[in-house]
Amino acid sequence: MTVHNLYLFDRNGVCLHYSEWHRKKQAGIPKEEEYKLMYGMLFSIRSFVSKMSPLDMKDGFLAFQTSRYKLHYYETPTGIKVVMNTDLGVGPIRDVLHHIYSALYVELVVKNPLCPLGQTVQSELFRSRLDSYVRSLPFFSARAG
């Protein structure tokens, strides 16, 4: 099992943070374009899912998987979106994404007066704590370090 990469978006579609661990293929477009494409896809999936749903929804879109990877999605009521790509063997990880939001983003970015909201997070502490948290996850592969 592995974690490929992680995106953090705010409600306006700004990519607040991006990091990758075992990513074997790049999208072939500049990073900025990739963030926009990812946000656009998630935005469309959200509206797609809310129209398709036969019942009233609570959490809405949770995850999708293709033949090679699985995308996990978590959105807070304030519109912060946490997106993690893993391989197919990983089950529901809502609590992990929620932890990244509540224990890392809120604690180290929102409560940090030196971090302006709504732009890319510059905090080195946030980056290193996020990196070590993801590396400590049980489904983070040990083989590539």
């Binding site: 009233d56 809405g60 999708f64 998987q65 293709t66 033949s67």
Partner: peptide
């Protein structure tokens, strides 16, 4: 990778 094969929501 293929495209989306399974898309999960709560409903």
């Amino acid at each position: 990778s293929s495209g989306i094969e399974i898309l999960e929501t709560d409903t």
